[in-house]
Design a binder for these strands. Structure first.
Lengths: 367, 367
DNA sequence: TTGTAGGCGTTATCAC
DNA sequence: GTGATAACGCCTACAA
């Protein structure tokens, strides 16, 4: 596997024009002048202030529309301190689940006439602090933190909170006064997946994954869910783990590891009937190992996984536990917007279930 | 294939606190008061104005830092009309290539202390117009339009341009005065891919794809590149196309179509040695058709494709032409930032090559 | 080299 | 109901 050197070829310049003359935007003063009324009346009319003559309101709105007026959000932000912008901090803008979070937030924001500014933390604490400052300097009204930089240092979050910025945290298992948290529910979700496998008649189920040195709640819960389900069903656990996996692995590395772990399984005399992988990429590694041995999924063996990134686009498409990233983004944005609008929802934490998505990598698709 | 009904379970509220008292941010006035100098001196010192005493500059900066000052971008934006924010308009925040564009822009923006606001057009002209207005109301300094809503109505882009906002367009084959455009180079890139196949000894190469009723430049160029390469090599074209495919297909639909088209090929007595799919999802359909016939890639047949969305995560990983989305985002952001900073680069168009990424779905990986 | 005053577009608080 | 006027945080002539 090798990559061609990237080439960037400049195209021809097809036209040159002098810098365009800047045209000023329409302001409430322009409208006021046109209508020969005071600009504060215009401001009130546009904001549907109750104490304004219906007649005036209509005239102003009509004129505003015909002149192509659009409120400058920075003007009002300067006065109100709120600007209908939410900031989202994610580790990076590459991993699909981060983009799901942003997408979810964006959807809700749009429906509420809010905007989104997104920043990377690059998975570092400094990055997260910097991103927070950037967002503060933009006077955002709320911040969604979806960047798992660690568990201890949350000063920047507290500073934001104390400056009156609403903050919501996604998938970080902390408990800070005044900070609402949305976390995935992985334990019961994993048990749910296991039950599905039991229903399909599986009894020998291998868990392919890893053990992190750092406490990662999702990892812990998935392992616990697998363990509890097997125990309750009176079955023997079959953990095939890469111990002490460092943070910041790439998908490629995880595929590699999933492959190796599965190959270990394939050297056994007796194979399990199903493999539950800890995430998409481990599952992909499993698929590759099976493919190289010409084992057919799900006819010869079932492969399912937690998380749902590229699983829909596999041959065959994988049954997964889709994590609630998009929904978390939606919920967090909705929560912040409500708070910003003055609806002081209670602060606490909310658990969001994963979604069992059944595709063609398990037995039930054969019937 | 079915989905469980999504369940959203509310978690327990673990703590309630009264609304946090709002703490005012530090402004230049606070610093001025603290240092007993005028606030304009502070403003100048912070902006490294040349006509300021070195001594004062240091004192001010030190104090600013110790007080945790951060410039309010809305304050300065109100005065200067620029706010170091770029807006990006994409069709949606779901398709990975859109996110690549945003990611590329974000990377460059970050390096230049700019921020990004992203909006959806939802693939409609109205959406694009609305997004443009939203961005204008945020007083963005520049806009990247990466939303292919059509070719005719570009008034909103002209309005933005005329208001002094720098605009760059990605992958839309238009020519507007004052608007810089970045477009992918698909013709030569496709020929490049074909040459690679020839080098591997392929002579019977089927093209699996579609013919759009609407003129889509990438589609046209890919078809033309395939045709020209085959012709120049003295080989016979083997086009397996779904004619008149409507716009807005889903990945699932494209997989389905790619599957069907490939199955047609598989009914032949003599099979081609390679398949070039028009995009990832058509290639995925091909993989599924081949898998169901137990044909091994690349041993029995080679599969490659244009575009590079989920191709890296296939079994086997697919050789592709990676489209320059991330790079386009980077280039567009860089261009806009330069212009905004006053470096008046000439306006025109630039072509960005696709990148041939060789993976394991073609013969050369076997050696 | 530094200080003063005016203004950017909007909202809010007075009067009238 | 409406109209002045004073903020908001910052920048920038102009003056000192």
């Amino acid at each position: 596997m090798f990559l061609d050197k990237h080439t960037l070829k400049k195209g021809g310049v097809i036209n040159k024009i002098p810098k365009v003359v800047e045209i000023m935007s329409i302001t409430i003063k322009d409208i006021a002048k046109e209508l020969d009324i005071s600009f504060s009346t215009v401001s009130r009319a546009l904001r549907d202030d109750p104490q304004i003559a219906e007649e005036t309101r209509k005239r102003v709105k009509k004129m505003a529309k015909s002149m192509g007026y659009r409120k400058s959000s920075i003007g009002s932000a300067l006065v109100t301190g709120k600007n209908n912008v939410l900031g989202v901090i994610v580790t990076d803008m590459v991993r699909p689940f981060n983009l799901s979070i942003i997408g979810g937030a964006e959807k809700v924001a749009r429906d509420n006439e809010f905007n989104i500014i997104s920043c990377n933390s690059r998975s570092t604490l400094e990055g997260e602090k910097y991103a927070t400052e950037v967002l503060m300097s933009q006077n955002v009204s709320g911040i969604i933190v979806a960047s798992l930089s660690g568990f201890k240092d949350v000063d920047h979050i507290l500073v934001a909170r104390d400056k009156g910025v609403e903050v919501a945290v996604i998938n970080r298992f902390i408990n800070i006064d005044g900070i609402h948290t949305f976390v995935g529910e992985y334990l019961n979700s994993t048990i749910c997946m296991m039950k599905h496998l039991f229903q399909e008649g599986h009894e020998e189920i291998a868990f392919v994954g890893f053990d992190k040195p750092l406490i990662s709640q999702p990892v812990v819960e998935r392992l616990a869910g697998y363990g509890r389900a097997m125990k309750e069903a009176g079955l023997k656990e079959d953990l095939v783990l890469r111990p002490n996996l460092e943070m910041n692995t790439t998908p490629e590395m995880e595929i590699e590891i999933g492959w190796e772990l599965t190959e270990k399984i394939l050297t056994r005399k007796h194979l399990p009937s199903a493999i539950l992988a800890i995430n998409d990429f481990f599952a992909l590694g499993a698929l590759r190992a099976l493919y190289s041995k010409r084992l057919i999924v799900p006819n010869d063996i079932t492969v399912v996984c937690c998380s749902d990134v590229v699983a829909p686009y596999q041959v065959p498409p994988l049954t997964t536990l889709r994590e609630p990233y998009h929904i978390a983004g939606e919920c967090a944005a909705q929560f912040l917007i409500e708070r910003i609008k003055g609806n002081m929802l209670p602060i606490g934490y909310e658990k969001l279930d994963c979604q069992l998505v059944i595709r063609e990598s398990c037995r039930c698709s054969l019937r």
